[in-house]
């Protein structure tokens, strides 16, 4: 826990410092969402458990950052802290300069379990409108809902109930619901983790297009290395116990990326190799479980 007692006053810019491993690569100099010295201790049945310790992250506006880690490494916990759903035990989270104490304005989390995240009694259209009903009049709401549904390609299914759609479509409804609020930051918790490989690939490309169109900042939690490298501007690997950022790797692959050609490029393969290494998959050896000294 290196920076647990930093002042919590409002401030902009990358306070995390350029020497820390999770520091921004500064695409345009202003942070969208950041955290400093975040540690989380959860009380479980077997006593207190330090899940995260001294995590520094700084995400620039419009940046796509993936957080990778092995199962149980605290990726989801970190995302919940960023989203204001879980208070950090130590450290601070800032979003556009203000300290986060609950779900922040303009920050929307997309959950993995789309089945439990959609309201089954509302049609697709009314699910997507849920977050903007209070602030918009009917005409504007309809327009924004349609816009979001078109972005995810579900305009034709607007009047269906979500449980009549396939898993991939349901997840697109949840993404559309987030997009309808016109978020500045999209936090995604293994959004494609429960989907089959083909659906996953097509949703990855759709997300890529949406992000290009809206310039939304995305923090994307996944356990899928290929997915992280394919989508991101930067990949962060959580490592250790309590977990901290073990590797921060810029992904300077050309955009737009393509499922076949990008994944065949030497750069892609080299980056993927480094991420696998950081996750503890030593070459020529079967993956070991447990603690590792990271690269």
């Amino acid at each position: 826990m290196t920076r647990s007692s930093e002042p919590t006053g409002h401030g902009t810019g990358s306070a995390a410092g350029t020497d820390s491993p999770g520091a921004t690569n500064g695409t345009d100099g202003t942070d969208s969402i950041s955290c400093e010295g975040v540690g989380v201790t959860l009380s479980g049945s077997s006593g207190a458990l330090d899940v995260l310790g001294g995590v520094d992250i700084s995400v620039a506006r419009g940046e796509f950052v993936s957080i990778l880690g092995t199962s149980g490494s605290g990726k989801t916990t970190l995302l919940r802290v960023l989203g204001g759903l879980l208070p950090a035990t130590t450290g601070t989270v800032r979003c556009h300069g203000s300290v986060v104490t609950g779900p922040a304005d303009g920050v929307v989390t997309v959950f993995q379990d789309y089945v439990h995240s959609l309201l089954p009694w509302r049609t697709v259209r009314r699910n997507v409108g849920l977050g903007i009903e209070a602030g918009c009049d009917r005409a504007e709401r309809d327009e924004r809902v349609d816009e979001a549904l078109i972005m995810v390609g579900l305009r034709q299914r607007a009047d269906e109930y979500p449980w009549r759609l396939s898993g991939g479509m349901q997840q697109r409804v949840q993404i559309a619901r987030a997009l309808a609020t016109r978020p500045r930051v999209l936090l995604m918790d293994e959004p494609f983790g429960a989907l089959d490989a083909m659906t996953k690939a097509s949703l990855q490309d759709q997300l890529q297009q949406v992000q290009e169109l809206t310039a939304t900042t995305v923090v994307f939690v996944t356990h899928d290395v290929e997915e992280a490298v394919y989508l991101s501007d930067r990949v962060l690997v959580l490592d250790g116990s309590p977990a901290a950022i073990g590797l921060a790797l810029d992904i300077p692959l050309e955009r737009p990326r393509h499922q076949v050609t990008t994944k065949e490029s030497a750069d892609y393969l080299r980056l993927r190799h480094r991420v696998y290494e950081a996750l503890g998959h030593d070459i020529g050896e079967r993956a070991r479980l447990g603690e590792h000294d990271h690269a």
Binding site: P103, F111, H116, S117, G131
Partner: peptide, 12 residues
Amino acid sequence: RLIEVGAVLRLS
């Protein structure tokens, strides 16, 4: 999870 959805979308 539904309560969290409400929180994330900043419902009153």
